[in-house]
Every structure is written in C-alpha cells, then in structure tokens.
Amino acid sequence: MPPPLTKTNANGVRYRRQTTVDQLIDEVAMLDRAALLSRFSITNRHDPIYLPSEVLLHAIRATRQDNRDSHFEALFRILLARVESLSRNAISTSQYRNVDEIRAEIASRFATMIAQDRTQGGDRLDIFEVVFDKALAALRVDVLRKLGPERLRTEPIDDANTGEPTAAVERAAEAFLGQSREKFDDPAFRSDLVAAIDHLPNDEKTVIGLMLKGIPIDGKEPGAVTIAKLLGCTEKTVRNRRDRAIFKLRKALAGEYAS
C-alpha cells in the first residue's frame, strides 16, 4: 500500500485516496520508466489501462525521493497537458475574452504548487490525489473569480429588461427544469445540456446549476438554503437570471425539448 496522505479535514480526519487509486499505485510500481510513461500517456479515460490523474500525481510526488529529473519532467508534462485539457473544456472562448490568460494562470498556479511540494514538502497537493478533477475545478473557480471579469457580452434576449417574469416564462422554466431532470440519465441529452450550460454566462450558469441540484430560488423558513441567500441577491434577480439562461438553453437545444 502507498503511504497514507497526511492532510486532515476540518474535523481532523485524514484524507484518503480512493481504493482503486491505491491499487493502481501499487500496480504501476512494478513498471519500468518507459512502460510507466507509456501508460500515463493514454488520454482516453475509457481505455481499460488508462491511469487516472490521481495516480500520475502520486508518481510525480514520489520522484522527490530520487534524482531522475528527465523522468520527472516527462511526468510533469503529461499531467500539465491533462490540466490544460480540463481547462479548455471548462473555460470556453465564448464566455471570456481572456481565456488564454485564465488557462495559463491555472497551469501556473498548479506548477507552483508542485514546485513547493517538491522543494518544501507539505500536504497541499494531497486533495489532488483524492479527487484530481474536482480539486482542479476548485482551483479553476478560485482563478475565475479573480481573473474572470472580462466576460464577453452575450446577446440580449426578449425578456431581459421586463422586470417581473411573466407567467409564460415561469411555466417554460419549470417545464424545462422538470424535463431536464428526467432526461439527465440520457448520455446524448446530458452531453448537449452540459455543453449548453457551459456556454452560459457564469451568473446564469450558477443559477441553473443550483436549480438542477434541487435548491429552491427562495423560501420562507429562516434556515432554508435558497439560491437567493447563497448568491446574496434578491429573488427577482435570481428569477431573471434563470429566465435568461433558459431562453438561451432552449435556443441552443432547439427542438430537443421545446415546450
């Protein structure tokens, strides 16, 4: 078994890798360098011998114990290529003017974390050995909230400035969300929907995402979790964002679920 992670959560409990990751780390420990690089170079997640990024990161951190710099560089480059791939998927050129700057900042932040880990040790990268893609999403959100304001203006829609949403818009929104939840298990629909949601401006994307998670826009109970409270804005603002988002999603997915 690979050595346990040392970082603890807020309750003092140590983070643990997924069992499959531990098993794969043990499995690849038997490979020579060339075979290891070959395995890590596989990018298709559906390939039966694909190795997840958690395993790759562990291999990189393990090279702290030796002096094989060329091997380290090769592993580093494969991992950073994966980081860049995830950034390209998540940060669309249709959303931000400065996509290159944002993606470069994410890669730079991650590269600096590896440099610190390699020279100073520490447990900062432990979470990436547990849930790499999700931890990278956390890094991405942090960067986007600091560098992301140069968002492109999106095309105006019919109801953008009408104030209170109309009953027809309300009904359309509810139908859209209800239908999407039912269809969410259909891979083709899911892929189209995710791509369409990814192209929404961030404030609209967050509202739609939170609604898909089942969080209500508002609520009477003092302790209730609502989108308006989470985002610190009024119910009316949330509804306007939702309506703008749904208008765009319906347009992007025209024909699939017009109601």
Binding site: S41, T43, N44, R45, A74, R77, I78, L80, A81, R82, E84, S85, L86, R88, N89, A90, D133, K134, A137, A138, R140, V141, D142, L144, R145, R190, S191, V194, A195, I197, D198, N202, K205, T206, I208, G209, L210, L212, K213, I227, L230, L231, G232
Partner: peptide, 24 residues
C-alpha cells in the same frame, strides 16, 4: 458564498464533460 455556489455547480458538471486534448 458565491465561489462555493459556483464550485457546487462545477462539481456537478465536471464528470459530465467530454475530454479535450492537449499535447505534453
């Protein structure tokens, strides 16, 4: 709060995205 809400949505979407490609 705003960053956490953004991340909650990202975490829901991350496993559903298609893979892009980038060379080392």
């Amino acid at each position: 709060a705003g960053a956490l809400a953004d991340l909650a949505v990202e975490l829901m979407i991350v496993p559903l995205r298609e893979d892009a490609c980038c060379s080392p």
